[in-house]
Design a binder for these strands. Structure first.
Length: 891
RNA sequence: GCCGAUGUGGCGGAACUGGUAGACGCGCACGACUCAAAAUCGUGUUCUGUAACCCAGAGUGUGGGUUCGAUUCCCACCUUCGGCACCA
């Protein structure tokens, strides 16, 4: 019998059975059933195997998938491997092995551990990002990004991790340190591929409305994108030395542009500040084009020099103490013609806005700090009902009130003023409405081996010839652009760069001798001279392949789509050497070839993942989905990849600390399963607390769950014995217990409240076993089904003992039990009776009397304790909430 | 500092739209079984007062408010956690 002591035997038995019946968990493309796409984040297959976090979140997804499957949905619950990445590469270097082989080993290990834990993954849809037939399409997507002008090459300072020897995206730098290894990040100039995710900033905000993510996740996404609406405003530079001086600013020769979210405060501007990195500063200190004294020029030069020495981190740390220098330049405020000084100060960032800000000390704390220090005017332009002391601090972030000291807009309310000034700026062509984003473009190049090669070719000859405007090359380029349907601008913006021909994809990672990245920042692939050498698709000259690879995110940006047509991704394992580039059955791209399947399965209904991926992975993958959608290869109507996002919690070690090898508090699911059985571990993890909570592992609580499962097993056994003896009286009360459990468990699983679902089954079993009566085998079967999503092995065993002719071969595809309303109604119920809101006694009434309000109140008053409570007192109010309670207000 | 959460017994946590606070589990106490222990089973378990109760009072971070009635709604504050941080 299936108690938790012979669990090993059962696990072996049923694992084998499921292995022989893959159709149980296979998601059919063609089926009359409604679809349900349940996705859990695919893991990075590390060498140490599945950890508790994996087991926990996968179980959460698995319970839901099984539940939906039993509720007659065609469920897709796939699994794959996000297998590119540094740990494998580092391990391979150390162990002198091929990353491909290491990956194969790790994924095999993960797969078998997952099978043991009883996850109902559809293994026919397994994908692996390092499979050349998978990354063929990752590369294809990149080519499309390039063709649409969303990927460009740029020489730019990047965040460089000296320890990992890799460029990092802004998103991967945490407080100036490498997210992965913690080393301090420095700056380095490297030519990088950049993806223009900023182009989708608005769509990524808008799209959130179409999802059912929890508020927290939506806020994280919105904050990360950081949209501010405002206006650009041009301020004239007063009195340049000569009108035709060789000064080129952003849009002309004699003005500087600022970005402001509050154009209404323009009358309060008493100075301007420019960032030390601004191009104008270079011109100012090096030339003699502006009428400022040599002394001032020298002071600016010194200040800029000092600012350069500070790291971003230092600059941020010194935020309270604002420093700056008057440049000597005077600006003209366009709204009132007032002359104001231009300062240079490092609290103004070059990377946001225009690198120049207007100082409104009365209404911005930073400007106020600066104005106080340099004794600049503080001009209030907004008046609110409360008095404000401008000597103490700024009155910042005021979004209501009345404009004052502001010429023709004085008297307007703030919102009106903002609108009016914006229109006025546009009318007079001094500025225009615009938005700024905190989100930066996405640095897509990595200088490592174990990643997808970026499928681009660089032709030096083309790059050079384009600029000497050889008409011959130019026409060839135009011809190529036309043929490939690429906007010629894209090619001109990236001189010499062309995508690989689609029909040669995938560009397979060659096997190299050494995987170590070089200190000069080039990827190990650069050493593969033969591989690097190729022909220019435009001029035919000798050209070079890109040697950078893609970031980790690339493969996970579209994997939820890959599952849908996994059968078309010709799996050849992780061994690139055996890869074939021909997939004759696919004409054009695999997305278009899979329209029907995509239509059927997308979007993902429930996406289970960790908080750590709520910003980056979610944002990147939503971006790629939207891009593919706009490209027209996704046939879905929903412009978002995931409908619901579920953020799973974290399991801490028994000491209430995050698990780590150094603390020695790591719980390994495989070991615990070995000791107590998979069913116990799964059920315990789901019982610990809410699915999204942070909880400490506690073996005592686990023992409680084990006891429950043992008692359940014993109960089933006893019931079967009783059935053999035959003849039983149906007890309505027990029917009520069973049906209440069905209702409760069903509702709880539906809303991912697994902990209370299990609690309800415990309560149910406690009630049933207390009675020691036979409840009938059909009822026993119902209970087994309720437990099936959690205790997958035990349930299968009990089912095999209980099933009749014609029943499903596996409990996991059996019909989920339905409760019967008639058993939910109890004969009588007990209504609490309160005096002044405090419950004093229970009134037991027959259910059919519940609606008779007056009668109930009278009965309540007659109860012994109640009558003594109200004796001699005046009843002011009598309240009866039908079926819920009686409250008598007395004085 | 800003944004978002969070706070309930000795502990993990229940209480879904305001209606019996503490489900379920752990722990603890007592009892049964046992030579004994473990395991298992049974009973009790928010706190205070009482030998004890069908007794009384207090009680969901703090202070106020709305209500017949508040863990739940409103206001102010505090704690802890997560994210962002000179973003103009």
């Amino acid at each position: 019998m299936a108690n938790t002591n012979n669990f090993k035997e059962l696990e072996v038995k049923w694992m084998k059975f499921w292995e022989e019946h893959p159709e149980l968990y296979h998601a059919k493309d063609a089926s009359d059933k409604e679809k349900k796409y349940v996705l859990v984040e695919f893991p990075y297959p590390s060498g140490s195997g599945l950890h508790v976090g994996h087991a926990f979140s996968f179980t959460g997804g698995d319970v839901y998938a099984r539940f939906k499957r039993m509720n007659n949905f065609e469920v897709m619950f796939p699994m794959g491997w996000d297998a590119f990445g540094l740990p494998t590469e580092n391990y391979a270097i150390k162990a002198k092995r091929k990353p491909q082989d290491v990956t194969k080993e790790n994924t095999d290990k993960f797969r078998s551990q997952m099978k043991r834990l009883g996850f109902s993954f559809d293994w026919e849809r397994e994908v692996n990002t390092t499979d050349p037939n998978y990354y063929k399409w990752t590369q294809w997507i990149f080519i499309k990004l390039f063709e649409k002008g969303l990927a460009y090459k740029e020489e730019m300072p990047i965040n460089w991790c000296p320890s990992c020897k890799i460029g990092l995206a802004n998103e991967e730098v945490v407080n100036g340190h490498c997210e992965r290894c913690g080393a301090e990040v420095s700056r380095r100039n490297i030519s990088q591929w950049i993806v223009k995710i900023t182009e989708y900033a608005d769509k990524l905000i808008e799209g959130l409305k179409e999802t059912d993510f929890i508020e927290k996740v939506k806020m994280q996404q919105i904050n990360w994108i950081g949209k501010s609406e405002g206006a650009r405003v041009r301020f004239q530079i007063k009195n340049p030395l000569s009108a035709d001086a060789d000064i080129s600013l952003q849009k002309g020769d004699d003005f500087l542009e600022v970005f402001t979210t509050r154009p209404d405060t323009l009358w309060g501007v008493s100075f301007m500040v420019i960032s030390p990195e601004h191009e104008f500063i270079n011109k100012l200190v090096s030339g003699s084009d502006y009428q400022i004294s040599e002394e001032q020029r020298q002071r600016v030069r010194e200040y800029v020099g000092q600012a350069k020495l500070k790291s971003d981190l230092e600059r941020a740390e010194l935020q309270k103490d604002k420093t700056g220098v008057d440049t000597g330049i005077r600006m003209i405020n366009p709204v009132n013609g007032k002359e104001i000084p231009l300062y240079v100060a490092d609290y103004v960032l070059m990377g946001y806005g225009t690198g120049v800000v207007m100082g409104v000390p009365a209404h911005d704390q930073r400007d106020w700090d600066f104005a106080k220090k340099y004794n600049l005017d503080i001009i209030p332009v907004i008046k609110t009902e409360t008095e404000h002391d401008y000597d103490k601090e700024a009155m910042s972030a005021v979004d209501e009130g009345e404009m004052i000291n502001s010429g023709e807009i004085s008297g307007l309310r703030v919102e009106e003023a903002i609108e009016k000034v914006k229109s006025w700026l546009e009318e007079k062509e001094i500025g225009q409405r615009t938005s700024m984003y905190h989100l930066r473009d996405w640095i897509f190049s990595r200088q490592h081996y174990w990643g997808e090669p970026i499928p681009m070719i660089f032709c030096k000859s083309c790059a050079e010839n384009q600029f000497v405007s050889s008409s011959d090359v130019s026409s060839q380029l135009e011809k190529y652009a036309k043929e490939k349907n690429i906007n010629i601008k894209v090619l001109k913006n990236n001189p010499g760069w062309y995508p690989e021909e689609e029909n040669v994809l995938p560009i397979v990672l060659p096997e190299v001798e050494a995987y170590e990245p070089s200190d000069d920042g080039r990827s190990p692939l650069a050493n593969m001279k033969e591989w690097v050498k190729t022909k220019c698709p435009v001029c035919g000259a000798e050209a070079e392949r890109e040697t950078d690879t893609m970031p980790n995110w690339a493969g996970s940006d579209w994997y939820y789509l890959a599952y849908v047509f996994a059968n078309k991704i010709n799996k050849v394992g992780a061994d690139s050497a055996k890869a074939t580039s021909s997939q004759s059955d696919i004409v054009g791209d695999i997305f278009s070839a899979s329209r029907e399947s995509l239509k059927r399965w997308m979007p993902v209904d429930v996406y289970v993942g960790g908080d750590e991926h709520n910003t980056l992975h979610l944002l990147y993958s939503r971006f790629i989905y939207k891009f593919l959608y706009d490209l027209g290869v996704l046939p879905t109507e929903h412009p978002e990849p995931y409908y619901k996002r579920l953020s799973h919690g974290v399991i801490l070690g028994p000491d209430n600390q995050r698990m780590s090898k150094s603390k020695g508090n790591v719980i390994v699911p495989e070991m615990v399963s070995e000791k107590y059985g998979v069913d116990v571990v799964r059920s315990y993890m789901m019982f610990m607390g809410p699915f999204d909570a942070t909880m400490a592992w506690n073996e005592n609580t686990l023992m409680g769950v084990k006891r429950f499962l043992d008692r359940f097993a014993l109960y089933v056994e006893n019931q079967i014995e009783m059935a053999k003896k035959g003849g039983y009286m149906l007890d309505e009360k027990l029917e009520n217990v069973v049906n209440k459990a069905i209702k409760g468990v069903t509702e709880d699983i539906e809303s991912f409240r697994y902990n209370t679902a299990i609690a309800k089954m415990m309560a149910c079993l406690n009630n049933l076993s207390a009675s020691k009566q036979f409840i009938g085998l059909p009822n026993v079967k119902k209970l087994v089904k309720l437990l099936a999503p959690f205790a997958v092995y035990g349930a299968e065993e009990w089912w095999s003992l209980l099933r009749n002719e014609g029943d499903e071969v596996s409990v996991h595809v059996a019909q989920w039990p339905k409760y019967d309303e008639k058993y939910l109604v109890e004969e009588s119920l007990s209504i609490p009776v309160a005096i002044n809101g405090k419950v004093r006694e229970q009134l037991v009434v027959a259910t059919e009397l519940v609606g008779e309000n007056q009668k109930i109140i009278e009965m309540a008053k007659e109860l012994g304790k109640i009558s003594s409570w109200i004796e001699g007192k005046r009843i002011i109010k009598e309240i009866y909430i039908p079926g819920k309670m009686v409250n008598l207000v007395v004085q």
